[in-house]
Design a binder for these strands. Structure first.
Lengths: 140, 140
DNA sequence: CAGCATCCTGTCCGATACTG
DNA sequence: CAGTATCGGACAGGATGCTG
């Protein structure tokens, strides 16, 4: 029996506060909800694929991200111990972001997800067209 | 050179429309943005871990999801060919959701992400407290 | 350059009521 | 049971201007 099944079936009454992403109020769910978003995952993937990067490099790397969301997401990742922020006291200032061991672990799980999406995008788009054709609109 | 590096450096001028999740307007980015959300990932994980499930089972399984978001996310997954929706014409009606091969592929990449989060949640929470302690509030 | 503060718009998403 | 429809508040997130 897997972890989630144990937790979800409640088969372990004395379970000493197991972490369960499926449980609404579990801390791990909170963490999952924060990581499972577009920008955070793309940032992790970018740092993993291209190594340490400056703020502006990241913004160019992750297409379409605004300074605001980039700052916000980076701050979250830094706060959770996934990303290291290093300031070089120069003028103009230079700030470099890099993965910490925890973040590198996660990034290595996330990268395959990105590659999979790139490989299967065409197939999913085809499925969509087929679906949309079969469900003109106001059906169901 | 990896796919994303090729695409992002523009080193392949004649690149025949490679898919790149980092590119804002690439179809694969659109797909990625749709999949990379809390509810979709949790649904995939639930279907992967517990097998085919009815609507209400899924709602109980994925803690905190509303009928609306569950319907919406399931519809997206179905539309993209990841999930199969089967209606049994009974009374009361019974609808079962299951992974299609495409969805099963993805789910197997997503599951480790969930498990990792459960394993590392405590560590990330600790990092947060430390961060918050070091940055009382209006610093920086 | 690397942000923060502000404003503003779109959308997310829950609550509620209704249908087959 | 498994949805759909509608409303409304909260918040995500882009644009802009300013600072160290």
């Amino acid at each position: 029996m897997t972890t989630e099944e144990t937790a979800r079936t409640g088969a372990e009454p004395q379970a000493e506060q197991e972490h369960d992403v499926f449980a609404q109020l579990c801390p791990s769910r909170e963490m999952f909800a924060e990581l499972a978003d577009k920008w955070s995952l793309l940032i992790l993937m970018s740092l993993s694929a291209c190594g340490p990067q400056r703020f502006s490099e990241l913004q160019r790397g992750v297409g379409g991200v605004s300074r605001k969301m980039l700052t916000q997401s980076l701050r979250n990742l830094e706060r959770s111990g996934l990303v290291l922020r290093t300031v070089f006291p120069e003028t103009p200032p230079r700030v470099v972001y890099d993965l910490r061991p925890l973040g590198r672990e996660l990034a290595e799980l996330v990268a395959p997800l990105g590659h999979w999406t790139e490989r299967r995008a065409r197939q999913m788009l085809a499925a969509r067209e087929e679906f949309d054709a079969a469900h003109p609109e106001g059906s169901r």
